[in-house]
Amino acid sequence: MTISSFSDPILEVKNLKMYFPIRGGFFQTIKGYVKAVDGISFSVRENEVLGLVGESGCGKTTAGRTILRLYDPTDGEIWFRKKDGERVEISKYTQKQMMPLRREMRMIFQDPFSSLNPRRTVKEIIGEPLIIHNIARGRELEDRVAYLMTAVGLDPAYMDRYPHEFSGGQRQRIGIARTLSLSPRLIVADEPVSALDVSIQAQVLNLLQNLKEDLGLTLIFVAHDLSVVEHISDRIAVMYVGKIVELSETENVLYHPLHPYTEALVSAIPPADPDIKMHRIPLQGDVPSPANPPKGCVFHPRCRYARDICSQQEPTLREVEPGHFASCHFAGELSLRGIGGE
């Protein structure tokens, strides 16, 4: 247990929902909703890394973006604890009200090729937030940019160059430097290494880890690659069709899963060692559409442990063991296999 776990959470999310309307017909009337995020609750402790994992379409990216209020949530609460200790409920904030908070909550994007403006120099890209928030100009700005570039392992001599002159890994560092420019406290990193080559991935992962330690950052790390998430996260939340199905310390989730979906997900990852043989648990069928999720437990049509109750009643995310949450009617009763289990 770390000290931080005793303090108040920096972020608390309660029953957050983000629905996107599906329009159709002559008058573009609303025909239904894509329930991208459908009632998730969790909290993030100061200075921890929370991994948000799941397969494509599970809502992990939408969740990350909604927390930063890039979308207007359909329902639910988002509580953020500011630098001065005040807790604010930001889910209903206007963009203008959000503005001062944007210095404290920032985002790192996946694709270092499309997230940087090709017509701006590195100095302009990294320095822009400082200008917008009226923090530094001129000489001072340049010093600050040079400091940030050094912090992420780039040579400040290159500050007048353009993004295309850098490699993928270096571009991701530029993005990270921009994110750090306002000394944020909470960062949502959306697949920050998945577009990078494996040898470069390690460089960026190590950088993020060091920055977290040195600057006392809190990270929400959104990714689909469980081995990357295991490496960097203190806790992991597993999402499936808009819901969190399991949440706990990294070790618990991967080695002692309580939800059948986590068990299947973990078993599907090929270990990079020919001596470890995979014991894959096959999943039947496809992921259901978030526009039309199944009744009861969202996972029941594919679950090998499903019983009658699973198709009728939706399980809630409950604390099955201390600090270990799962949303399954039979969590704790099933004996599920984690990594390396027989």
């Binding site: 494996v198 040898s199 470069i200 991935q201 390690a202 460089q203 992962l205 190590n206 469980l226 081995s227 990357v228 295991e230 490496h231 070790e251 991967l254 080695y255 973990v266 990852i269 270990p271 990079a272 060692d273 020919p274 001596d275 470890i276 990594i339 390396g340």
Partner: peptide, 30 residues
């Protein structure tokens, strides 16, 4: 995987996080 000789192969294997390698192993990037 177990008797790699070339420094690049060794580097590649050391830079990848492996699921289930308990304890946070430090990644050694190339």
């Amino acid at each position: 995987f177990h008797r790699s000789l070339h420094p690049y192969t060794v580097g590649l294997l050391n830079s990848v996080p492996v699921l289930g390698r308990k304890g946070k192993k430090v990644l050694v990037p190339i």
